[in-house]
Structure formats: C-alpha cells, structure tokens
Design a protein around this nucleic acid. Structure first.
Lengths: 243, 243
DNA sequence: AGACTTTTAAATGTCTGACAAATGATTGTT
DNA sequence: AACAATCATTTGTCAGACATTTAAAAGTCT
C-alpha cells in the first residue's frame, strides 16, 4: 500500500482509497484490526490528523468501525444488509431529488423492479408477511389518515411484498427504489376516492400472493402503476392550471 | 443545526449527520457553499480538525465537494448517476463478498431484476445499444479469451441490455446487481462448450430485443439464468468432489 | 488461592497553533 | 487597457499536547 505525495489528490483521499482497495480485494478481511493511527501515519509518512481524515471517510461508508480503549482501533466492518439498506435509501433519495428525475421515470423503475419480485413473493411469502400486507391495507382504509401516514403505510405494504421473495439481495436493491419514491409520493394529495382505488388494487395483489398466483400479482402491480401515474398526472395538471 | 457535546457519539459524526440532514431536507441546496471550516468550527463550538473530519465523511458519500483557494470552500454536490453508480457497485460487491450470499441467491436477484428491464429495453433500445450487444457477443466467441475477459464482456452485454430501457433509475439500480456478480462469476471456469451455450442464449436475447419482442427477451433471460445456475452448480460440485 | 481493587498502558477523540499551497480579487505598473 | 505583482481567503498538512476510554496487569485483602 503506497501513496503518491506529489499527486494532486488529497493525501487523506489517497490513503482512504488504498485501504478501501485492500478491503475490497480481500487483503484485509472482516474484523481484522488495522494498524493504529500512529502506525498508519508512520507507514504512509503523513501526520495523524491526515490518517484520521482517511479513516473517517471509510467509516462514513461503513467499511470500518472504530473502538476506543486499550484493545481498540479501527476494524474492518462486516457490511450488513441493514447498513447497506440505509445508504441505499439515502443515495437513491438524493439522486431523485437532485437530478430532476420525472415522476414517471421513477415510477416506472419502481414498479418494473417490484414486478420482478412478485412471482417469487407469491410462492415464498411467509404467513407473517401476508398478514403485514393485510394489516397495512386495513390501515389504509381508516378514515382520518394523513397523506404522509398513507404513504408510509403504502411503503410498508410494498416492503412486505418485496421481502416475501425471501431474497436479501432483492430486498436490499428494492429498498432504494421503493423508499426513495416516498418523497415524490408525498407531493400528492390522495382523495378518499383515490385511496379507495389503491386499496382495491392492494387487496387484489394480496389475494394473488395468498393464492400463490404470481401472474395475478404482476397484473395487480401493473394496474397499480397505471393508477399511480394517472393520479400523479392529474395532480400535476391541476397544479399547472392553477398558475 | 445543533449538536450535543455530551452525546456518546463522536462530535465529527454528529456534525456530519447535522449537515447531511440539512442537505437531505433541502435546507442546503445544490451548489450552495457551506461556511468555511473556521466558521463551522465556531458555530459548532469545536476545533477545526473535528469539523474537517465531519466534512471528509460527507465528501466520502459525494454529498459535498471542496475547493481550495480564495473563493473555495465546501459546496453541496449534485449527486450524479455516475457517482451513485460507483458507490452502488462497491457496496453491492462488498455486501455479497462479506455476507456469504450464495451464488443462487445473487443469481436469482440479478436475473429477476434484469427481466424487469427486458420488456422496456425491447421497445426502446437504441441502435447503438443493440450494436454493443452484438459486438460483445462477437467478442465472447473469440478463441483465446480469458475467463476474466469473458466475464467482463458478459457484464458489458447485460449493461447494454439494461441501459436499453432508457431509464437512468433502472440503470443505476441494476448496476449493483449486475456488476457485483462479476467476482462470483470469475470463480467459474468456462469451457468452450459453456461459452457456446451462453453465446447462443445471448444471441437469442439480442434477436428478441431487435425484434422488439419483450416476452422472448424475458424467456431468453430465464433460460440464461437456468444455464448459469447449472454451470455454477457443476463447478462447485466438482470442487467439492476434489477434496 | 481466589476475589476484588488499583494502576497502567494503549488507543482513539479532541484541541491549539502553525505553516504550505492554491486561487480569485485587488492593486499597481506600463 | 493589458498585464504583472501582491494580497487575502480558504483548504491541506503538520507537530505536539491533553482528555477519555478500555482492557489488561499488578497489587491487596480475605
């Protein structure tokens, strides 16, 4: 592991990069302890603050964790699905909000991906996940629910559907697509009639999943996508007309 | 934006978190300049190195960029699809390698997601993307290709297929699923016969895409998934038998 | 000998103050 | 007016110090 002191790039960035490579390539394995900050400073011929900046960069990506005390130090962190999930959601949300991604584009991606999970979920979902879907459908029918709460319940419903595939990689990937849509969905006001039609489609999907009918679940999702896009188009059209 | 000096969490982590929140919630907008390090230090009542550690954390997530000089400073960065794509690949790769995800699980997720893109790609792909697919198929048929090069070409083929959907959100999401599989695929040795059968399926998919036949493309992917899993199972069985 | 307390050492977390280097703005000169 | 020199601001880096946490080692008492 070497760095180039004459490179235009920051030393801390170079050091972080070198250590990251060592982790990705497997030269540093999970739970292995890195040298202490003082040792790293000497090894790279830089000062301790510079090493620390590099370590903080890695910590921000959950690649390492640090512990204080006598047997402390920086350890290679096992990247958990949970950690990756959170990063994924943050990144996806910012990506959508900062890049003027149209509602349709995001919606299309989300439902395309969800349809990929549906057949698996229909055959594998646990009773618990089905119950969650039913419970969220019930909640969505409650009067007096705020739009935010309705959206949150919607996310929970779809998350249960996705998790039903019992494939952690799929769940992780979908997390971004589904949750990142929430801020966009929150821009929409749902009338009672809108909610009713969404609810019907949700029930249809839940029924399909219960019957282990993947094709029907896919059909339900397709209908839901169409409904969602129509709904959003109406809202945006009304807003545009108001000006 | 306030922090709690008595919290058990690192000050730099708290500061990073506070600024991150400000960005995510839109209090800080793209290209807005943050206060200088000295000003932030005073604002949060901490020293400059502590502020710097916080800023490096944010820089590691591509949330800010820094510039030296008189009019320099830290600026809120527009998270590009390119940046997000790279992060996604790194995260997904580590996730798979560190969590003992089985080949089958990863494979299933990858092909399920790819099938989600196929119908869109069949109707929208540009001539350029179709040409890329054909070119990669040609390359895969060249004799003397190393297994690594074959895998790399495979990734390029599938990436062209995914990009054909012309949905940047989908492309970004799929990046992780497809590229993260490469290290797993590299563990496999492809015989000439294996390559031939993969090549045939790739051609089948390309033909379907050319004919705007989404269903046929999905069928091709399904067959390819089956073939890939069978291939991997054989390799693993042979390795297990050797011991 | 064993259980408890104290000490110690090692490591990260934080601070202070300083200098280097980059860079745009300002000023001065021709 | 064009160009060059200077300056001020800001990030990048360094050295050294102290605070805090933590576990192990040493010591002490029953």
């Amino acid at each position: 592991m070497k760095i180039d002191p004459n490179s235009p790039a920051d030393l801390s960035a170079q050091i972080a990069s070198a250590i990251r490579d060592a982790i990705v390539t497997g030269h540093l394995i999970v739970d292995e302890r890195l040298p202490s900050e003082a040792e790293l400073a000497e090894q790279f011929q830089v000062s301790r603050p510079t090493v620390r900046e590099a370590l903080k960069r890695l910590a921000a990506q959950s690649l390492i964790r640090t512990q204080r005390g006598a047997t402390g130090g920086a350890f290679v962190n096992r990247l958990s699905f949970e950690d990756a999930y959170c990063q994924q959601v943050t990144t996806s949300t910012l990506l959508l909000s900062m890049n003027a991604v149209s509602f349709d584009t995001a919606c299309e991606a989300r439902y395309a991906l969800e349809r990929a999970c549906a057949p698996l979920s229909a055959t594998r979902r646990s009773a618990d996940q089905l119950a969650t879907m039913r419970a969220e459908i019930f909640r969505q029918g409650q009067p007096g629910l705020t739009d935010e709460a309705f959206c949150a319940s919607d996310v929970a419903f779809h998350r249960a559907l996705v998790d039903g595939a019992h494939n952690p990689v799929l769940s992780y990937q979908l997390a971004g697509a589904v949750e990142a849509m929430q801020p966009l969905m929150n821009m929409i006001t749902f009338t009672a009639r809108d909610r009713q039609s969404i609810l019907v489609l949700h029930s249809q999907i839940a029924d399909a999943v219960e019957a282990c009918d993947g094709a029907a679940a896919v059909a339900g999702l397709t209908a839901l996508e169409e409904e969602t896009r129509k709904l959003a188009a109406d809202v945006f059209a009304r807003r545009a007309a108001k000006r």
